[in-house]
Amino acid sequence: MVRLVGMAVGLLFVFVLSWAALAPREAAEPDPIKLLHKHPREVSFPHSGPFGTFDRAQLQRGFAVYKQVCSACHGLYHIHFRNLEQIGFSEAEVKAIAAEYEVPTIDPNTGEATTRPAIPSDKWPRPFPNETAARAANNNAYPPDLSLIIKARKDGEAYVYSLLTGYGEEPPAGFEVPEGLNYNPYFHSVNIAMVQPLMDDQIEYADGTRATVDQMAKDVTAFLRWAAEPELERRRRAGIATLAFLAILTVLAWLTYRRVWAGVQH
């Protein structure tokens, strides 16, 4: 009985699916955007690979790029000022950086909204109070928060690096870049609202490194990788210890197994 009902149901599904599979398809138009879209370029860092560690000097340079260029529009919402100690700033330096920013607070005497200088335990202040304000100030485009951007995009680092260095290409003849947008083949729609953010020698690095577009793009990408995965170095160290421990345990378990089963046919 089960088999008969099952076969009937099976034949029904097969019939419906054959009908669907045999139904004619409209030939799909190739999407011109897709043809222009480019895969991100490979980029490598001192922290790439399973045993890599961050280069603190590079992270600090990247932070400088973020602070002087990106932070005008892009937030770093999940980062607290105190986190900057992890990339090699001293406690005093972190306090000084924090004090440059104002964060909202309540006046203890009047109860009215006001601001105070930030302290290390504060979160990085948002450049715009909300998404509507951000869109209003940016030609209706929303500059995404950058603290998770490396994890929130496919090919994380390669994508951000390629996007930052992907300006300047001429769109193919006949391709109209809409008003107010910029051509960048690494962006998903190849038309991005952000104007080219980096120019050669736009900022001056404290360590004397020459601030080329490529250098700045690399540095800020490294910094954003840290911002997205501050636990990266600890995670890898713990991982090596765990794998080493488990490898030994596996060998011991295998020896135990061989002993227990010695002479038993199975």
Binding site: L246, L249, L252, A253, L255, T256, R259, A262, G263, Q265
Partner: peptide
């Protein structure tokens, strides 16, 4: 009840591996 070859002479080594495995696992 299949024939099982006894390895009586190996008792000490066997004990050592059992104890090492258990101890290692417990530490983990």
């Amino acid at each position: 009840s299949l024939p099982e070859t006894a390895e009586g002479g190996d008792v000490r080594r066997r004990d050592f591996i059992y104890i090492a495995t258990t101890a290692f696992g417990a530490v983990g």
